[in-house]
Design a binder for these strands. Structure first.
Length: 152
DNA sequence: GCCAACGTTGGC
DNA sequence: GCCAACGTTGGC
């Protein structure tokens, strides 16, 4: 899952009560479908910092609540308000995630792009803008092992 | 339903 | 700050 460190970075998540927060503000259908239909309680997720000096994976979190309506879409006062969505027929969904730990080092996008094992990940594709994307077990394990490896 | 215009994302 | 890539909007 991607987020901008200046807006909501992993340091923010770490400081939340119970180190848990709802992942609001996603206004993209593919990403929404992921949260509404695919992500299950207990699933592990990499936290990815985007739009910053060194974009890449910085930590690990866990899904603690499965897809439910993103209430920030209902309130006109909210930044993420969307009139398309109302409580009777929610358009946008979110999950709750809990901080687990930092990765032992930042695993940069630049590095991830270099591995053949990850060439099928949407993340490393040019022009990718999806903020939430799935990893296969293989890809997840591969990235986890990179923690103990020197970058490059 | 097509598609041009527009807005956003996000790496660089 | 630039700009390519993509998603969304709206006129027709």
């Amino acid at each position: 899952m991607k987020s901008e460190p200046d807006v909501f970075g992993i340091e923010h998540l770490k400081k939340m009560p119970k180190k848990t927060e709802h992942w609001d503000g996603v206004r993209n259908y593919q990403a929404r479908n992921m949260m509404r239909d695919e992500m299950k309680k207990g699933d592990m997720v990499f936290f990815y910092h985007s739009n910053c000096t060194e974009p890449g994976i910085v930590g690990i979190m866990e899904v603690v609540r499965e897809g439910y309506p993103d209430f920030t879409a209902f309130d006109p006062e909210q930044k993420y308000y969307d009139p398309k969505s109302d409580p009777d027929k929610p358009c946008w969904y979110m999950v709750d995630v809990r901080y687990k730990r930092m990765t032992k080092r930042l695993i940069s996008l630049q590095e991830l792009k270099g591995y053949k094992a990850l060439e099928d990940c949407p993340l490393v594709r040019k022009g990718n803008r999806l903020s939430i994307m799935p990893l296969t077990k293989k890809q997840w394990d591969f990235i986890l092992k990179l923690e103990d490896k020197k970058p490059g």
